[in-house]
């Protein structure tokens, strides 16, 4: 899905919601942040460091060199950005603790450090009793909590959440959102969350961007956007996101 003319500014420790209908290009957008998707043109900066820069016809006057993180540099960047997915994407042949240890293992962390972090994270996500279980033995909400613990394993500064609760019931959804909120407060992690449900945004986000048909049509502080919806799509999402999903 192609996006056009997107410009977002996310501050440290924000919980930034990106909301839009299915197929609006939300997933493409969030995947640009860790370069799982490569933009055709534009610029991406994280902590002031450019990770991607390529100018097309929209940036004719810019003379800065093109840039695209690759190889070890790209992997290092990704190790500092946690990500959770709609389908938990857990390794089904590995235990809960092995799954949480995965990002640290591939980053080459020492064994004792991994063990320490894993038991700490198991406490945070309240799954200490499931340490030796396999994902197939867990509920959907528990699986998503494992994947959140995994995403936090390398103590990232940014946590990307791609529809983290779409497959969960409303009670479990609230537990996951509360967990994300706690992580934001306790670990000062910046959260970027994709969703098509306005309730999620209302519950934990402090800022929001509304995407409609390949464009960002509304963005800003949550109160400002939701109280004075300037665009038709924002009103529609507000008036009944559950209804419009059918």
């Amino acid at each position: 899905m192609a996006l056009e003319d997107v410009s977002l500014h996310i501050e440290p420790e924000d919980i930034y919601g990106i909301i839009g209908m299915s197929g609006a290009g939300k997933s493409t957008l969030i995947r640009c942040i860790n370069l799982l998707e490569k933009p055709v043109a534009g610029e991406i900066l994280i902590d002031g460091n450019c990770i991607f820069r390529k100018f097309g016809k929209f940036f004719e006057n810019n003379n800065e060199p093109e840039l695209m993180l690759q190889g070890a540099e790209l992997r290092n960047l990704r190790r500092q950005i946690g990500m959770i997915f709609q389908s938990h994407n857990l390794l089904m042949q590995k235990t809960v603790s092995q799954n949480i240890a995965f990002p640290m293992e591939i980053a080459g962390a020492p064994k004792h450090e991994i063990d320490k972090r894993v038991s700490e994270l198991l406490e945070v996500v309240n799954l200490a009793d499931k340490v030796a279980n396999y994902p197939s033995q867990l509920s959907g909400g528990q699986r998503q909590r494992v994947s959140i613990a995994r995403a936090m394993a390398n103590m990232p500064k940014i946590l990307l959440c791609d529809e983290p609760t779409s497959a969960l019931d409303s009670l479990t959804t609230n537990q996951i959102l509360d967990l994300l909120w706690d992580l934001n407060q306790d670990y000062k992690v910046t959260i970027v969350m994709i969703t098509h449900e306005i309730e999620l945004v209302k519950r934990i986000c402090n800022k929001v961007a509304v995407i409609d048909r390949t464009r960002v049509v509304d963005q800003g502080e949550i109160g400002q956007v939701l109280l004075n919806p300037s665009m038709e799509i924002t009103k529609q999402l507000l008036s009944g996101s559950r209804g419009t999903r059918g």
Binding site: N34, L36, L74, R75, N76, L77, R78, R79, I81, M83, F85, S87, N89, L91, F102, P103, I106, A107, R150, L160
Partner: peptide, 15 residues
Amino acid sequence: VDNGLIEMGQAMGAT
């Protein structure tokens, strides 16, 4: 193997 797992590995910075 689910493509999502490959994407997960890439997102975590795996070679």
